[in-house]
Every structure is written in C-alpha cells, then in structure tokens.
Amino acid sequence: MSHNGSKPTEKPKFAMYWASSCGGCEIAVLNIGPKILDVDAAFDVVFWPVAMDAKYKDVEAMDDGSILLTLFNGGIRNDENERLANLLRRKSQILVAFGSCAIEGCIPGLANFSSQDQIFDAVYASVSTDNAGGIRPKTHTTVPEGILHIPEFYPVLKTLDQVVDVDYYMPGCPPESHQIATVIDLVLAVLEGKAELPPKGAVIGAGDSTCCDECPRQRNVKKITKFVRIHEMDAIDPDLCLLEQGILCNGMATRSGCGALCPQHNAPCIGCYGPAEGVVDYGARIMSALASVIDSRDPDEIERILDGIPDPAGSFYRFNLAHSLLRTGKVG
C-alpha cells in the first residue's frame, strides 16, 4: 500500500467512526491498554468523534485517500450514517468494517423484523413513553430560527458493505481487545515494511474455525433430546459441551477468535463473532446443523424439542439478520 499524497515526514492518518451502534466498539479500542499509545505514536488521529472534537466538514476538506486507516463501526440506519460511510470510503485507503454492527447489522439490525411504523410506535407511542402530543420524528421541522434537519430513518438497517466497498472485516460484539491489539501490530508491521496486508475482503482479528475450536469443554457425538434455558437448570456441568446439556450454544457456528469467552463462563455462545468463513447465512447454517442432530423420528416429539428453543429468530439471527439472505423479516 503506497501512501500517495502524504509527505515522508508526516505520520499516516487514522480515523474511527460510529454509525448505528452502542459505543462498545469504541470502548474496546480504548481497552487495548498501553497499546493505544503506539497508535498515537504511529498515527495522526484525524477524526474520532468519541475521543476528540472534529467536524464533518474537516473530513470533507481532506484529500481523497488521505486517511490510511478507518475503523468504521455501526450499521447504516439513516442517511447521515450513509453519508459518512460514503465520505470515509472516499477519504480512506483502508476501510475496515469494525464490529458486528458494521459487518452484519448486529442488535440494531434485529429491528429489520419490524416495519418503520412498528419501530416508531414502540419508541414514541408505547406505555413506557411519555409523549402526550404524539410527536413523531420528521426530517424537516420549521422553528422560529429556521428549518431543522434530522437524519432520515431508513426502512431497514443496512450493513456497511451493502452501501460501500469494504476492505476488511473485523468481527465481534465488540471485537476483543487482544484481537484489536493484534491487528494494530499487524498494521504497524506493514507500515514498517515487515509484513503484508491480507487479501482484500479478508476477515481480520479472528480465527478461521468456530468457537468450539477454542472451547475447552468435552464434546461427544451430538444427539439433542431437549433444549433448556440456563435458569431452568439445577447445575451446569462445567466440563461438558453446553449444547449436549440442552443449552442452545451457537459456538459451533460462530467464528473463532474470542477464545470461547462465554462458554468458558457457563454461558452459551450467542454468536457475536458472526458466521464462519464462506458461510452465506448464519441462521440457516445453525438451523440445519441443529435439525440434523435432533434425536427423534417422531414428528410430535421433534415439535416438542424444537419448542424448547428460546426465541428462534432472535437466537439464530441475533447478530446477522441484516446481512443474512433474509435481510429483513418480511418478504416483498
């Protein structure tokens, strides 16, 4: 990667942006500890709303391609998100979809199961909302001082690569700090000419197997006879695969990289590292895997076993609905 337009003495430029996200990814980056000082030493941080003051117009004024590395987290929920995605794409040499929201929609993407009206009803007109005037957001509002603009809320949440070209994907909700540190080390090594960048489109900061690969639990040939939720269990065997104990663990379908954090703490993997390499639809994958090992041939019993799955849509598409083949909860 050549840094066209930057003078040799200048440090390469770094940006980070949050679109529709919770802010966890930003915390994860700050959480890399002393390594953050290496970032500061090696890069000139030009744009990072959570950490420093900056204006969109400052970014607009930069030369195209003048930012070496942009970590973009959050999905594309409104036209402001989309505008920033396009802007940062133009200004950056390397654009990384950072974290589950940018890659696959994550929790905000679950709103794709509902229509825009349903979402607004839930937010502005449910019992928990004190909104006597029944006010709904509008893109233009005239006030004495002039016209106010707020971003237009899209019918569905899109992922970053559904609106712009993405160079790399860094999964996790949020990406684990040790993985962020590894990626930063890699970038630094590339800058020093000691390493090569992975091929475009690669997933970085993660493994190439699934969570089970990093999970220390004992596992046997799978035969599922029931699904239970953790609070329904008297005790969880600390050494046996959770799925074999009836707990819906998504580890088998979720990309490795986190170190099997959740299963190691008696909690099932819920899939935040996204699908494994080459998997087109995470939810479909996990459903066909589970369906293959339900241990019964009796349709009624199979029905009973499946009824034990808590919130199937949420369990199988929790992180990836927006990027799945379904994309939304509705066809047409």
């Binding site: 969570c211 040939v221 799978k222 580890g251």
Partner: peptide, 12 residues
C-alpha cells in the same frame, strides 16, 4: 483447518 470438532456431523 476450519473444522472445530463440534461433532455435529459425526453420526449423520
């Protein structure tokens, strides 16, 4: 390389 040893397939 990709197989995580989850053993879903083992008896199928």
């Amino acid at each position: 390389h990709k197989c995580s040893g989850c053993r879903i397939c083992n008896d199928l």
